[in-house]
């Protein structure tokens, strides 16, 4: 009898091991909540507001996916992750997707077994310094102490940049943006380096923003985008096309305000397909017809999300630049919905 109990345990364990890689879509639907990995706090991109609700440019993607899959943009459980913990949280299944300014690189895509499904922000690494330091270019930072977030691509870019320019620096490695900001403000480092968008966000939260400048050098390419686990293509497609639905919506002039109106009046076949009035695009991904409409209604199209969280009318004040639509000289380009 003892033996059978033991064998039973073994068999159970083997089954458990097998269950680990079930389809994410089914898990999310069964759970009724989307687990989304976000930043611990980067104003504009992903940070809790005064009432504790997460808002931001990256967070809006979580909301759009939740709206598309579950039909309710509020059914998201936000898990704050640091640069160190984010990929482990995703790989272990703690979160279903990451929407947390993470740079798409070759080794992350292949070696870490992740899938970057799209680029929601084309960024580059920059430096912020205090104005009274009297520095106008990153190349003048010879011998400076630089605050840097550990576990990031910026850490490696920084080493490369200083090496390439034959200058030296002292690194101060910190775990997250908040700590980096504290050290930078306290003067523990001369310069703070991270993605230029992150610098703008950090600068916006400083009480004396006018005393800090972002140096003109952009020393790297940082395509930031949502990430899913490698191997579950269906789930990857859902996140990818939810994002592209937002971009396409901007191209087609569909906003959160007029989405119902457009749905009622449009004669454009592609708009009809996107909004589920024609064809069965949703079913191809295992979703219902209205997924696109709900995703757009959640926080608006790509342009609306940009303007509301990080655009020029916000304290962060980022220009669209590379992130304008391709029709306006930018790189945001949604593949056709057909």
């Amino acid at each position: 009898m003892k033996r059978s109990v033991f064998l039973g345990t073994l068999a159970g364990a083997a089954l458990l091991a097998g269950y680990a890689s079930a389809a994410t879509l089914d898990d999310v639907k069964a759970r009724g909540v989307l687990n989304c990995g976000v930043n611990t706090g980067l104003t504009g991109f992903g940070a809790p507001d005064a009432t504790g609700n997460y808002t931001g440019f990256d967070v809006a993607i979580c909301k759009a996916v939740a709206a598309a899959v579950l039909g309710d943009a509020s059914k998201v459980k936000y898990t704050p992750t640091t640069g160190e913990t984010r990929f482990t949280a995703l790989a272990s299944g703690e979160v279903d997707m990451l929407a947390r300014n993470s740079t798409w690189t070759y080794s992350r895509d292949n070696d870490l077994k992740l899938d970057f499904v799209a680029v929601n922000y084309y960024d580059g690494q920059g430096f912020m310094v205090k104005k009274d330091l009297g520095v106008a270019s990153a190349k003048e930072l010879d011998g400076a102490t630089v605050c840097i977030q550990t576990g990031t691509t910026t850490e490696l870019n920084l080493a490369d940049f200083f090496k390439e320019n034959n200058i030296t620096y002292t690194p101060v490695t910190v775990a997250d943006d908040a700590e980096a900001q504290r050290q930078y403000v306290a003067g523990a480092c001369d310069a703070f380096t991270t993605d230029a968008s992150g610098l703008a966000a950090t600068r916006a939260t400083l009480p004396d923003a006018e005393n800090h400048i972002i140096l003109p050098e952009i020393i790297s390419k940082e395509p930031l985008g949502p990430v899913v686990r490698h191997g579950d293509n269906n789930w990857g497609d859902i996140v990818r096309w939810t994002f592209y639905a937002l971009v396409a919506a901007e191209e087609m002039g569909i906003t959160s305000a007029n989405v119902e109106e457009v749905a009622g009046s449009t004669q454009n076949p592609e708009v009809k397909r996107l909004l589920g009035l024609e064809g069965d695009l949703g079913a191809m991904m295992g979703l219902d017809k209205d997924w696109g409409k709900r995703a757009i209604a959640a926080s608006g199209n790509y342009g609306e999300i940009f303007a509301a969280n990080i655009g020029e009318s916000t304290p962060i004040g980022l220009a669209r630049g590379l992130n304008a639509l391709w029709t306006q000289g930018g790189l945001q380009y949604a593949p056709p919905f057909r």
């Binding site: 992350r108 070696d111 490695t173």
Partner: peptide, 14 residues
Amino acid sequence: GTLGGITLNQTGRE
């Protein structure tokens, strides 16, 4: 900090 921190993060070999 090195092996269990930055190296772990950069290589993903937890």
